[in-house]
Structure formats: C-alpha cells, structure tokens
C-alpha cells in the first residue's frame, strides 16, 4: 500500500514531464523531414564579431526564402574565425582585416582555397561630450598621447602635453578632466582602434600596441555613450553608426590621419578619406562554394542588391559602386 502510493507519486509527474517535452519536440519538428544530405543544406559562418551582423542579416533574409537550410553565424573574432576557416571547420569566415601571412600558410597547409570579398567599410568615431568646445580635431599622435600605453595615469588632457609634443601631436591640450569610456580589450572595436590609430606610433616608441589600462571599459555601447555624455570633457570611441544614432548626446571629432582633419560621414568613409575606418571582408571556401549549393546560393544572395542593402541596414558604410562591382566580379570569377 505504502509502496504503491510512493511509486505512483513519482510516476505521475515523470509522465507529465515527458509528455510536456514530447509535445514541445513534436511541435517543433513538424517542418523537419528525415532527409539529411551530408554537408550540404547547411552553411557555417564564423569570424569577426563586427561583420557578424551583416552575415546574420543576410542569413536571416536568405533563410526566409529558403526555410530548409541550416545556417549558423557567430562572431568569436577575426583571428579565431580564420583558425576555424583554415582548418576547414567553417565555410565562410567574416573578417575585419585582410588575412595575415601566417593564416594564409595554415590555409595552404590544410588545402583550403578561398576567395576574398570586400563587402563594406566600418568607421570608428572618436567621441566627446557635446559640451566640449575646446576640441574639434585630433591626430593619431594626439590619440596616442591621450589614450596610448604611455598615457596611463593622465587625469587631465593637459597632462598629455609633453608626450603629445614628443610624438608629434599638437601638445597643446585643454586643462580639463580627461575621462575615457570605450570598449574593453575583448572587443573587436578596441582591436581596430588600436591597430589603426595607435599601433604605428607605439612601434616607433617601442611600446606594446595597446591602449592605456586605466579607462572605463564596457561591452555595452549604450554605457559608453552614457559615460562620454556624462562628463563635459570626456573622450571615447564607438562604431560610426552608433555614434551617428546618438549625435544629440555625443559629438564626433574630426580625425587627422596625416592629410588634414576629416569629419566622419558616409562619403568620407566610403572614399577612404576618413582615416579611422577599416574594410570588412568575407572569405569563402572555394571547394565548398563549388560543392555545396547552399553555400553558393547564400553568397550569391550576399552579393545581390538585397544582400548589399544589409550592409547599410546594420550600420556600416556601403562600398562605392565600383568597389562593389569588383567584389561581385571576384565572386563570379572564382
């Protein structure tokens, strides 16, 4: 008696749980059919977290028209992405820089041939508070003096005067609090900023290519905007599109990469005049593009007008028509 009651009290909830799970499973698998055709029917995209939104947007649009394909897009970073790509684990690798020589070597060792397609441009905006009238334009040297590895401990802009003069910047900064809010080291935006603005000067100075360690870092762009707008004499950097969206609370500074001050906008970034910008690529595995129809179709879509539109939709700068046609030609002529 005792036994029976005990056993039943265990059974009933168990059956309920199993039934629930079964229901959940069957409702999800209505569209699934049992056929599995090896590697095709699926696309694996990995690589740069910056390019990820474009690839994800295109994957989403592509999947709407082709509900049977499996596409996964993630963004562990350009370097990690190439490691997977050159081992043949992914079909497409997103990249926010051209492939490096040692990565080419890995790809060659593993017999992975690829085609490189430039798909857009990402601009970085250096931002300060809208209340900051003292600063309008900064050179790379200025940025190095204010946020480079040697600037650690500078609490006021003018603390950087000597260093700025030494590296060839203006060396004449306002005597005001310097509060910096920017993405942390684990982010791709940090990497780009350091590579474009700081790396060259850091090398000349015999320093590691890093930003100073003592700034407020956040993985959330909103927090960076809050931090920068929260202090009148702040400094920071975020992606161009996000800075544009918040142009009422933060001011985008002009940047001088050696050829005069340029303000970031769609034209100056697309034309390459604005120096704090980088090209975005996708690398497609040639063997997969030839053997896996889904990969071919997906990249075809990527290079179509609808695919091109995604670039601007997710906040990056569209290539000029000429450059876009060059990418399309590279894909067609693979």
């Amino acid at each position: 008696m005792h036994t029976h009651r005990g056993f039943r009290s265990l059974l009933v909830p168990l059956v309920l749980i199993l039934a629930l799970v079964g229901a959940a499973c069957s409702s999800g698998s209505e569209s699934s059919d049992s056929s599995s055709d090896g590697g095709s029917g699926s696309v694996a995209v990995s690589g740069s977290s910056t390019v990820e939104p474009i690839s994800a947007a295109n994957a989403e649009k592509f999947a709407e028209a082709n509900p049977d394909v499996a596409i996964s897009v993630d963004g562990p970073g350009t370097g990690d992405g190439f490691q997977l790509f050159c081992n043949g684990e992914t079909d497409i690798s997103d990249a926010s820089r051209p492939i490096k020589d040692e990565e080419i070597a890995t790809c060659e060792d593993n017999g992975v041939e690829y085609v490189e397609l430039k798909v857009g441009i990402d601009g970085l905006s250096v931002i300060t508070s809208t209340a900051n009238d003292a600063v309008r334009c900064l050179t790379f040297e200025d940025l190095y003096a204010l946020v480079g590895p040697e600037s650690e401990g500078f609490k006021s802009w003018s603390d950087a005067d000597d260093l700025g003069t030494e590296v060839g910047g203006s060396g004449d900064y306002p005597d005001a609090d310097l509060t910096i809010t920017a993405p942390g080291e684990e982010s791709g935006t940090y990497d780009s900023f350091v590579e474009i603005a700081l790396e060259g000067i850091a090398e000349e100075q015999g320093q590691d290519p890093v930003a100073r360690a003592d700034y407020e870092s956040s993985p959330n762009d909103n927090v960076i905007i809050e931090g920068v707008s929260g202090s009148d004499t702040s400094l920071g950097w975020v992606g161009y599109a996000f800075a544009q969206e918040n142009s009422d609370t933060v001011k985008e500074l002009e940047i001088d990469g050696g050829d005069g001050c340029v303000a970031p906008d769609d034209e100056t970034i697309a034309s390459g005049e604005y120096p704090l910008a980088r090209p975005l690529f996708i690398y497609v595995n040639k063997a997969e593009a030839a053997g896996n129809a889904t990969v071919t179709d997906y990249v075809d879509f990527y290079m179509s007008d609808a695919g091109r539109a995604s670039v601007a939709e997710v906040g990056y700068v569209d290539l000029t028509d000429e450059e876009w046609q060059a990418s399309v030609a590279a894909w067609d002529g693979r």
Partner: peptide
Amino acid sequence: EAGQTMATAIASLATGSDQVAAGGGQ
C-alpha cells in the same frame, strides 16, 4: 569601481573576441 573576480575573469576570457588566436602584447 568595476573589477574582476576569479570567476568573471574566466567568463570574460570565454566570451571575448579573438581569444584563441589573440594577438596584442607579448
């Protein structure tokens, strides 16, 4: 201030960009 604990250091390393092939300083 913001800071790190042992556990969050692990989580940060696991979620950051380019962790496996990280470049940067020595």
